[in-house]
């Protein structure tokens, strides 16, 4: 295994473009090292991107949007005094991944590029409308988070391409987001179901909404029908039931060691309601 620690994304991209065999980028390493140690994936080329300037930065831009470096860790996101005020759902979703120790290393970008449908931060990012900047041999492009995963362990990134920044939109007024997942223990598990909700209110009425589901299909889903079920409502019981029904209907899960089809389908609806209530309360400025 060759190990490189380039000083720029252009250099990293060139290394990857010219490499043969399996290439992996190393940010927090919490997936790459597990796969390496268990002989699942032994990269021929490992490109550590943490020596690139600015990769740990968390920056609020003039328009209120956020740019996160690709090696900013979950712990750094949680400790940031303002990011969590704007996007509590995104920060909490990231914070749910693994232990305190894992938080010291794990990154949004790594969680996304691992391509797991159960990745906790991804539904939250999808709901929040997060995009990523992708640097490749032909320059940079911007992609929506929901367009990155293409299947379990697979991404839309081409050879030589890597994510170079995470862009979170401006929170704006009267908005709130939330993420909940179901795990059998209280910590340390992979999500059996995950739900991200981001919405905006006009008075008591929901005027914008994005609802995403994790661990219930080969990729994280952005579910239009869930959004439709609550837009124009005050999130009353009828709207919540419609949301739950839409969430369950969108599921296309598998039976595996972590949960059954029936369980995931049912709990997706339950969690969709619970998550939407938190996002709604946050949009109203209530503590939740």
């Amino acid at each position: 295994m060759d190990y490189h620690s380039p000083a720029s994304f252009v250099e990293a991209s060139a290394l990857a473009a010219n490499a043969t065999g399996i290439t992996r980028f190393l940010a927090g390493g919490t997936d790459v090292l597990v796969q390496l140690r268990s002989d699942l994936v032994t990269p021929d080329t490992l490109i550590d991107i943490k020596k690139i300037n600015g990769v740990r930065d968390i920056t609020r831009n003039a328009d209120g949007s956020w740019t996160l470096g690709v090696a900013a860790t979950g712990a750094e996101m949680s400790e940031h005094p303002e990011l969590g005020r704007d996007w509590p759902g995104v920060v909490e979703a990231m914070d749910l991944i693994g232990s305190t120790q894992v938080q010291g290393r794990a990154t949004l970008t790594g969680n996304l590029c691992n391509g797991s449908p159960a990745a906790d931060s991804v539904p939250a990012m999808v709901a929040a409308g997060v995009t990523v900047t992708v640097t490749g041999p032909d320059g940079a492009r911007e992609l929506a988070v929901e367009d990155i995963p293409t299947g379990p362990g697979k991404t839309a990134l081409a050879k030589g391409e890597l994510i170079s920044a995470v862009n979170i939109p401006a929170r704006g007024a009267n908005g709130g987001d939330a993420y909940l997942r179901f795990i059998p223990r209280t910590e340390m598990d992979i999500a059996v179901v995950g739900v991200g909700v981001n919405l905006r209110l006009d008075g008591d009425k929901i005027i914008e909404a994005r609802v995403s589901l994790g661990a219930v299909a080969p990729t994280v889903l952005l579910v239009e029908d869930c959004a439709k079920a609550i837009i124009g409502t005050t999130l009353d019981e009828v709207a919540l039931d419609a949301l739950a029904t839409a969430a369950s209907a969108a599921c296309n899960p598998i039976d595996d060691k972590r949960g059954t089809i029936e369980f995931r389908t049912e709990v997706a609806g339950v969690l969709a309601k619970r998550t939407a209530k938190i996002a709604y309360a946050r949009a109203k400025g209530e503590h939740a």
């Binding site: 268990s38 059998p184 223990r185 209280t186 910590e187 340390m188 598990d189 992979i190 595996d256 060691k257 972590r258």
Partner: peptide, 23 residues
């Protein structure tokens, strides 16, 4: 947890879920 193939499906602490402190 054994699969149809008779292989153990959960041979790491991530999926063999012993109680953690917060449980």
């Amino acid at each position: 947890v054994y699969g149809e193939d008779g292989r153990l499906q959960n041979s790491i602490f991530l999926d063999y879920r012993i109680p953690v402190a917060s449980d």
